[in-house]
Write a protein that binds this DNA or RNA. Structure first.
Length: 284
DNA sequence: CTATGGCCCTGGTTGC
DNA sequence: TGCAACCAGGGCCATA
């Protein structure tokens, strides 16, 4: 599923094909992708604008638009589970799952989304959507000291907390499991009971995992995620626990487990990631 | 404050 | 073999 590394890859690869382009027109094949905005209003807002900049915040691709050199709103694209963003040659067939198309002065931007969970929003003010997100895990705000005090301030299970975008923005199910394993922390561990040296390990593991995944252009373990050039990422080959239930831990050889935490499939090594006494609730 | 469960969607997998 | 039931999963919302 597109998480921070996949979205970062999409933003990086699509940037040179998008920045400087002018939006000539477009169409909307699935209205709800717009998140409530009328297609007519949406198209009127973007037609005639020029793409000034492409960047990423959390799991969203943000496209800054301008008109006659002045700010003219933003596109906020959330891929959710199956969303894709690509620039294709004009006139090419985007297939049955294309939900939004924007014709550029060179090529056409397609938003493709099999399950229709993704969003392709236009907003004058992006903070309307981006406000409330936690810090970027690869940004300067995210320090070991910050993580320590924020973990202590709450009494939540580590896994759901790290998935909470208001706490920390950009991690999803895959990279939380991988980071917790690298930090040797159990997903059911309570946040306020993590020892200081484990906090530091978790902080380092989150950054290292995300950086390594970006380097490999993200993970493609199913048919969904592809880079805008159609390539799969390759970080799935580095997975230590995600999707490896029943197979030996690459660190210690114990059998990797799959449990459910907060309705999410959760993968861990029971030997590397000891469950502290009294941690969490539920089975396993 | 924290947790739970439903909802949105569809393709792929499982079970009979 | 055929088909229905079920599942995954990010974010959001209502409820406990």
């Amino acid at each position: 599923m597109p998480e921070l590394p996949e979205v970062e890859t999409v933003a990086r690869l699509i940037r040179p094909r998008l920045e400087g382009r002018r939006i000539r027109g477009g169409w909307v094949g699935w209205e709800r992708s717009l998140g409530g905005m009328e297609p007519e209003a949406f198209l009127a807002a973007v037609e005639g604008t020029r793409v000034a900049r492409v960047w990423r915040r959390a799991k969203q691709v943000v496209v800054d638009l301008e008109r006659r050199g002045r700010p003219a709103g933003h596109l906020l694209v959330h891929l959710r589970m199956t969303g894709r963003l690509q620039v294709d040659p004009a006139g090419s067939d985007p297939g049955p799952y294309a939900r939004v198309g924007l014709e550029l002065d060179r090529g056409v931007l397609h938003f493709i989304d099999v399950r229709k969970f993704g969003r392709f929003l236009f907003r004058e003010d992006p903070s309307e959507v981006l406000a409330g997100l936690g810090p970027e895990p690869l940004g300067e705000e995210f320090t070991a000291a910050w993580l320590g005090s924020e973990l202590r301030r709450r009494r939540r299970l580590l896994k759901p907390l790290l998935l909470d975008q208001a706490f920390l923005a950009g991690l999803g199910n895959i990279y939380v499991d991988e980071a917790l394993h690298a930090a040797r922390l159990h997903p059911l561990q309570r946040s306020d009971r993590v020892r200081p040296e484990r906090v530091r390990a978790l902080w380092a593991a989150i950054r290292a995992t995300l950086e390594a995944a970006i380097e490999r252009e993200g993970s493609s373990f199913d048919t969904f995620y592809r880079t805008p050039e159609g390539r799969p990422g390759s970080y799935q080959h580095q997975f230590q626990v995600y999707g490896r239930q029943g197979r030996p831990c690459r660190t210690c050889g114990a059998t990797v487990q799959r449990i459910v935490v907060g309705q999410r499939g959760t993968h861990l090594c029971p030997r590397c990631q000891r469950r502290p006494r009294g941690a969490g609730a539920g089975p396993a």
